[in-house]
Amino acid sequence: MITIENVHKYYGTVEVLNDINITIDDGDIYGLIGRSGAGKSTLLRCINGLEKFQSGTVVIDGVSIHALQHNGLRELRKNIGMIFQGFSLIERKTVYENIVIPLECWNIPKAEQEERIQKLLKIVGLESKRDQKARDLSGGQKQRVAIARAMVLNPKILLCDEATSALDPKTTDEILELLLQLNKEYGITIIMVTHQMAVIHRMCNKMSILENGHCMVSGDVKEVFLEQPQALQNLVGTLECNLPETGINIEVLITDEAVGQAFHSTLSLALKKPYKLINSNLTHYREGVLSAFVINVSEDLQKDFLEYFHANNLNYKLIERV
């Protein structure tokens, strides 16, 4: 388990992390999302001690990294793999030579090196590229090598710093699938820094939204999207500008896939009252689906609709025009 408590970090006089409190359980895929400069990467780097912070604590499996000296920090990092946006490979070295470096640094016997690398190459799907130079690989393949290198010491935690930002959508999909597989098969905790909401949807069970060094929201991904806090709206934008000028606008959020699919027809049949469907959106999460509908009703019908939503236990809120 990773516990981040009251972490403050400054660059000179600029506070880049302000009182961050986050708890990440074993096996979580935790998303850190925010705009550029929000402090996501800095926070991620505080977890494995690449960045020092001025106050607060980061405790990993009962060990406070603040108290660790050089060797202790090295030992801790053995259990925390990290991948980067730019892959960070030695381009003139082969896939094998890149992956073997951490094992050599930790004096793992040759036979075991071979065994571990062979196994990882199979997992990341690069068995046939073993002796190919890194510079001759595609972006996706390079990131697979980086993942294999990060996993070769059998870490319990994997930190991903914008790991898919430089990749095209299809390759991003493949890399995310690989990370999910690693999480499922090895129970590895993954912490992902991203600015791509789709990555959070697809991968994470928990998330935090960072804004100017502050952690604005933390919690289950589904709950955060159901609650639609201001920080999330700041990040993904709002619909208000496209709303009709007359009537009342209601947003309905449904987590049950079947209910979401039948929402439109059920509502028409149940109430038999006119409304306009302004927007509908279906988002696939790691643990389900979230359907979001925005409807526009006349003011005299507002009460009927709200009563219906309330009676059917549907999550709704009124949206005001700006």
Binding site: L50, W106, R149, L153
Partner: peptide, 15 residues
């Protein structure tokens, strides 16, 4: 050398 490559090395505990 890219700073990320050095960070990658530090992240797996290289001296």
């Amino acid at each position: 050398v890219s700073k990320d490559l050095i960070d990658a090395a530090r992240s797996f505990g290289a001296t």
